[in-house]
């Protein structure tokens, strides 16, 4: 029965790879492996339908459209939502235009960001921090008041701090797709847009805790972990438990012999494949609840893991190259 689908060739930064038709440039770049640092992605999340295209950090230059139509694309394209064509040639980290545009996007993302990393729970595993380190400027040119929002409790376990939000919409898609009712969305528009539940309604769905994991910044944080410890002082351990609702495969972050928090397992692109339920995440904080299977290897290149997890320092880091 199985039909063989013909694979198509795409070249990204000189690495040629064969992928199935319909693959996006970003996913093709992720498949290349070690030789290529894939474009950064702040809003795209492979398991969420419709995500991507919003943050514009994954812009790449298409220097050859396809074998049939070799004209380059006139504008930079969002690699997370542009599908590859046969014979396409893409410039990612080798394109000055794309790197320049990304630098611009990072600056835009940081414009209204409070830069309160020293007191932010996400620091150390924050995608925006990593992105700014890799592509951003060391100082800001913005001389106006940054926008501020009040902190909101959405539900028993989750704190929403809109001031830090970069409006990636990931949590909206998570809440819409993972849970069985539309729970929260975006209010207002432009730079006044905010993530909100309907008039500060509580989010009390059994899987709603996953919005914390998908949030690339510290806008959605775990109230059971807030201000308990810094991420880099904790020891991540793979752990499993018997759970009737979810896979029970999680990471427990230990401080000494205590479990400080529980999260789902993220792959090297910072994405969760197996979402976990609220019970596992928020209520199982005793060692007896979990079977610890071994240390968790954090392979993601980041500011903090470069120092702490002994992962290689990202070689494309602009700051370091210029130093």
């Amino acid at each position: 029965m199985s039909e063989t689908v013909e694979k198509i060739k795409v070249t990204i930064d000189g690495n040629t790879i064969e992928v199935l038709p319909g693959t996006t440039i970003l996913n093709a770049a992720r498949m290349v492996g070690e030789n290529l640092v894939p474009p950064p992605a702040m809003c795209y999340y492979s398991s969420l339908n419709g995500s991507g295209g919003k943050c514009r950090t994954c812009l790449v230059e298409v220097s050859k459209g396809s074998e049939k139509d070799p004209r380059p694309m006139p504008k930079l394209v969002a690699s997370c939502s542009t599908q590859v064509m046969d014979g396409m040639e893409v410039k990612n980290n080798t394109s000055d235009k794309a790197l320049e545009a990304r630098k611009g996007v990072v600056e835009f993302l940081l414009l209204n960001h409070p830069l309160d990393c020293p007191i932010c729970d996400q620091a150390g595993e924050c995608h925006l921090q990593d992105l700014a380190f890799e592509h951003g400027l060391a100082h800001t040119r913005y001389e106006f008041k940054r926008r501020e929002f009040d902190k909101v409790d959405i539900g028993e376990y989750i704190k929403l701090h809109m001031t830090r939000c970069i409006l990636c919409y990931r949590c909206v898609y998570t809440a819409n797709q993972l849970t069985n009712q539309r729970e929260h969305g975006i209010l207002n528009r432009g730079d006044a847009a905010e993530i909100s539940t309907f008039i500060e309604k509580n989010l009390d769905n059994e899987f709603i805790g996953n919005v914390i994991d998908v949030c690339p910044v510290g806008a959605l944080t775990d109230k059971t972990f807030r201000f308990k410890s810094r991420v880099w002082f904790t020891n991540p351990m793979d752990a499993t438990c018997e759970c009737s609702k979810c896979s029970g495969e999680a990471v427990v972050w230990m401080v000494g012999n205590d479990i400080a928090r529980v999260t789902a397992r993220k792959d090297k692109f910072g994405e969760v494949k197996n979402f976990i339920c609220n019970d596992c995440r928020f209520n199982k904080k005793e060692l007896t609840d979990w079977n610890i299977t071994g240390p968790r290897h954090i392979s993601r290149d980041s500011v903090i893991s470069a120092n702490h997890y002994e992962a290689p320092i990202p070689s494309h880091t602009i700051l370091l190259n210029n130093a």
Binding site: G53, C55, R56, V105, F108, L111, R189, G190, A193
Partner: peptide, 13 residues
């Protein structure tokens, strides 16, 4: 509309 970051932040700036 506030969907993509260059326009959301850049227009205000």
């Amino acid at each position: 509309c506030g969907q993509c970051s260059p326009c959301r932040e850049g227009t205000g700036w």
